[in-house]
C-alpha cells in the first residue's frame, strides 16, 4: 500500500503532537513527529512528506500573541520549504495554536501566490480568558476545502484563550465567504441543520465571539485548512462530554476522524494521478 507521510510538527511548546499523530494513524496515514529544527537544519526535508500538520499547544507560551513566534520561525526560517510544499498542492492543517501559527504567518486565509502576508488574526476571546468547553461546528458545503468534504456538523472541544477570528479588511471577509474559505462556523446545537449564520451567536455557543462565528478557514485552494477547535481530541466515541447519556451508543471512531481521513485519501489520490 502506498504510504502517506505526514509531518506532524513538534517542539517549542507544541503539545498536541501525540494525539495528532494518533488520529492520522487511525485515518490510515503514516505520521512522523518532526521537530521544526530538523527541517531548519536540513536533517529532514518537508518535500519528502505529503501532508503537514501544525498541532495545538502553547508554542513559546503564546507570548507576543499566540502563534506569532512559531509563525515567524516558519515564515523566516522555513519560508522556501513551506511555500514549495503549499504550491505543490499538498494538504496542510493547523489546529488551535497551529491555526494561529498559519494565520499569523499569512498562510491562512492566504492567497494564490502564497505570499505569506498576514490578513487576519485571532484576538483574545471576548471573555478574556482561556476556556475548555465543547462546541458544535457546521461546514460550508460549497467550500473547496478538501479536509471537510462530506461533513455537515460535528461536535468538538475548544481549548483556547485567543480564538476570535477577525480581520482589518471587511471586503476581504466577503471575498473569503464567497470563495467558501470561511469553512467552519460555530452553531447552536439545538437548531436544525443547517443553521450556520453570520450573526454572532451568544456566548458560550460561540465561545470566543469570533466574527461571523468563524471557527476555521481554508486557503483559496482548499488544501490549507486551520481551525480553533480540536477535532483530533474526539477520535473515539468515549471522549465526548456526554457519551454516558447515549443509551444506544455503538463505540468506535468518532465522526471528526473524517477530517484526517479526507486528507489521507486526497494524498493517496493525487499520488495515483501523478
Amino acid at each position: 500500500m502506498t504510504q502517506v507521510r505526514i509531518a506532524v510538527l513538534s517542539g517549542f511548546g507544541i503539545n498536541c503532537e501525540t494525539e495528532t499523530m494518533a488520529v492520522f494513524e487511525m485515518a490510515g496515514g503514516s505520521p512522523e513527529k518532526v521537530h521544526v529544527n530538523m527541517l531548519v537544519n536540513g536533517d529532514l526535508n518537508l518535500d519528502d512528506y505529503h501532508i503537514m500538520a501544525v498541532p495545538g499547544g502553547f508554542s513559546f507560551g503564546d507570548h507576543l500573541g499566540s502563534g506569532r513566534l512559531l509563525g515567524n520561525r516558519l515564515r523566516f526560517g522555513l519560508r522556501d520549504q513551506v511555500r514549495r510544499f503549499v504550491r505543490a498542492g499538498k494538504p496542510v492543517i493547523g489546529i488551535c495554536n497551529g491555526f494561529q501559527v498559519l494565520v499569523k504567518m499569512g498562510l491562512l486565509p492566504g492567497d494564490e501566490e502564497v505570499t505569506l502576508t498576514q490578513t487576519a488574526s485571532l484576538a483574545l476571546n471576548d471573555s478574556a480568558h482561556y476556556e475548555n468547553r465543547w462546541a458544535t461546528l457546521e461546514f460550508d458545503q460549497n467550500s473547496p476545502c478538501i479536509w471537510t468534504k462530506g461533513l455537515t456538523r460535528i461536535r468538538v472541544p475548544v481549548r483556547h484563550g485567543e480564538g476570535k477570528f477577525v480581520t482589518s479588511d471587511r471586503e476581504l471577509l466577503d471575498q473569503w465567504a464567497k470563495r467558501g474559505q470561511l469553512v467552519a462556523k460555530y452553531v447552536d446545537p439545538s437548531k436544525e441543520y443547517p443553521s450556520a449564520t453570520d450573526e454572532v451567536l451568544p456566548y458560550p455557543i460561540s465561545p470566543n465571539q469570533s466574527w461571523r462565528n468563524i471557527a476555521g478557514v481554508c486557503d483559496p485552494t482548499g488544501l490549507v485548512f486551520g481551525l480553533m477547535p480540536h477535532p483530533e481530541a474526539y477520535h473515539s466515541t468515549w471522549l465526548s462530554p456526554d457519551w454516558t447519556r447515549d443509551e444506544g451508543i455503538e463505540h468506535g471512531r468518532a465522526p471528526s476522524i473524517t477530517i484526517f481521513h479526507n486528507a489521507v485519501e486526497y494524498s493517496l489520490q493525487s499520488k495515483k494521478e501523478t
Binding site: C16, A22, E131, N132, R159, H230, A233, L239
Partner: peptide, 22 residues
C-alpha cells in the same frame, strides 16, 4: 475549572463536568 485544559492528549473519558448541559 473550565479555564484549565482538561482534554489535551485526547484521553479524557470522564471529565470534570458531565450531564446534559456539561
Amino acid at each position: 475549572v473550565r479555564s484549565y485544559d482538561h482534554e489535551v492528549i485526547a484521553q479524557s473519558v470522564i471529565k470534570p463536568f458531565c450531564g446534559v448541559n456539561h
